[in-house]
C-alpha cells in the first residue's frame, strides 16, 4: 500500500482513512439493504396512517356533528341517529370483568409458577407449556367455549347470552397473557429483595405480599392493561355468544347485550342508503373510532408503564 499524502489528493485525512477502511468502494449493497428496510418500515407506518385516516374520514360526519349524542344514544335502525351506548356499556363491563376476574387469578398463578413451584417438577412444566399453548388458541375457539359453558351450561346464573357471559369468556381468553406478563415482571424482581425479607423472618407469603408484588406491580399492570385492550377489541366471541344488533333500549347484566366490536362488525356489513348523507359505513367508522380511542388509550398506558418499569429496573 503506497502512502498517499492527504493534501495531494485533495482529501482530508479522515476521508482517506474511511475509504481505506471500507475498501475504497461505495457500499452499494449496504445502501440497497438500508433502503429496503426503510421502505418496509415506512410502508408499515403508512398502512397504519391510511387506516387511521380512513376510519377518521368515515367517522367524521357523525363525530363532528353529534359525538355526545352518538355515545349516549341507543342502537337503532337509522345510521344518522343511531348510537353506541349499549355497546359502550357492554365493552365497559367486559373490561371490568377482565380486571376483576383474570387479574387476581393470573397474578396468583404467576406468583405460584415463579416463586412457589419447583421448576423441575413435571406438573409445573406441564402448566407452563399449557399456558403458552393457551395464549396461541384463536379467539373464536374461546368463543365456542364461552357459548357452551357460560351461554348454555351456566345459563341459570349468567342469563345465557349476556354481558356477564361475554365478560367471563374474555377473562378466560386473556388469562394466559396476564399470567405470562406477570411471570416476566415477577422474574425481574431482584432475588436480594426476597432474601432480605426472609432474613428478617418474613414468611414466603409476606415476602410476596410486601416485596414481590409491589416491585413487580408496574410490569403486572402493563400486562393487565394490554389484556383489557385485547378483550375490548375481540369480536368473534361476541358473535359466538349472540350479541344483538337489533334494538336495545335497556342495558342489563344478564339480559340481551351487545358490545362495540359487534356493532362495528354488523354495521360494516349493512348496505348504505343510495345517495344518502350518513350511512352505516359512517356509523361503523364512528363506532370503530370510539373503540380505537379506547384501545389506543390502554395501549399507550401500557407503553408508558413499561417504559417506567424498565427505568426503575435499571435503577435510573
Amino acid at each position: 500500500m503506497s502512502l498517499i499524502t492527504p493534501g495531494a489528493a485533495g482529501k482530508t485525512a479522515a476521508e482517506v482513512t474511511r475509504s481505506q477502511l471500507t475498501g475504497g468502494k461505495r457500499d452499494t449493497a449496504g445502501l440497497v439493504l438500508l433502503v429496503l428496510l426503510l421502505l418496509c418500515t415506512l410502508t408499515t407506518l403508512l398502512i397504519l396512517g391510511v387506516l387511521l385516516q380512513e376510519v377518521l374520514v368515515d367517522a367524521w360526519p357523525i363525530m363532528s356533528e353529534r359525538p355526545g349524542d352518538f355515545l349516549t344514544s341507543t342502537i337503532g335502525s337509522d345510521p344518522a341517529t343511531t348510537g353506541v351506548w349499549p355497546g359502550l356499556y357492554g365493552s365497559f363491563i367486559i373490561g371490568l370483568g377482565v380486571l376483576v376476574l383474570s387479574v387476581p387469578l393470573g397474578v396468583a398463578a404467576a406468583i405460584y409458577l415463579e416463586d412457589y413451584a419447583r421448576h423441575d417438577h413435571k406438573i409445573t412444566q406441564l402448566i407452563l407449556v399449557n399456558i403458552r399453548n393457551l395464549a396461541g388458541v384463536p379467539a373464536v375457539i374461546y368463543g365456542v367455549l364461552g357459548l357452551t359453558i357460560f351461554g348454555t351450561w351456566l345459563k341459570g346464573i349468567t342469563g345465557g347470552s349476556s354481558v356477564i357471559s361475554a365478560a367471563l369468556t374474555m377473562a378466560v381468553l386473556v388469562l394466559p397473557v396476564v399470567i405470562i406478563t406477570s411471570m416476566e415482571a415477577i422474574r425481574a424482581v431482584p432475588q436480594g429483595l426476597r432474601e432480605g425479607g426472609y432474613g428478617v423472618g418474613s414468611s414466603r407469603w409476606e415476602v410476596t405480599r410486601d416485596h414481590v408484588i409491589p416491585y413487580a406491580a408496574p410490569g403486572i399492570l402493563t400486562g393487565v392493561v394490554l389484556s383489557i385492550a385485547r378483550a375490548l377489541g375481540e369480536a368473534s366471541p361476541l358473535i359466538m355468544l349472540g350479541a344483538i344488533t337489533g334494538l336495545l333500549p335497556e342495558t342489563t347484566l344478564t339480559g340481551p347485550f351487545t358490545a362495540l366490536p359487534m356493532l362495528i362488525y354488523n354495521w360494516s356489513g349493512r348496505p348504505d342508503p343510495v345517495g344518502g348523507d350518513i350511512g352505516w359505513t359512517n356509523a361503523a367508522a364512528a363506532a370503530g373510532l370510539t373503540l380505537l380511542i379506547l384501545v389506543i388509550f390502554f395501549n399507550a398506558a401500557a407503553i408508558y408503564l413499561r417504559n417506567r418499569f424498565e427505568r426503575t429496573r435499571l435503577g435510573v
Binding site: 418500515t41 408499515t44 407506518l45 398502512i47 397504519l48 391510511v50 387506516l51 380512513e54 376510519v55 368515515d58 394490554l226 385492550a229 385485547r230 375490548l232 377489541g233 375481540e234 369480536a235 366490536p261 362495528i264 362488525y265 360494516s268 356489513g269 359505513t281 361503523a284 367508522a285 370503530g288 373503540l291 380505537l292 384501545v295 389506543i296 390502554f298 395501549n299 399507550a300 407503553i303
Partner: peptide, 24 residues
C-alpha cells in the same frame, strides 16, 4: 418513535382492520 407506533398497530382490534379491508 417507531417502536411504540408498531405496538399501536399490534393493538388494533381485528374488527377495525376488517372495516378497513372492506371499505378501503
Amino acid at each position: 418513535v417507531v417502536k411504540p407506533v408498531i405496538e399501536l398497530l399490534a393493538g388494533l382490534p381485528s374488527v377495525v382492520v376488517g372495516f378497513f379491508a372492506l371499505k378501503f
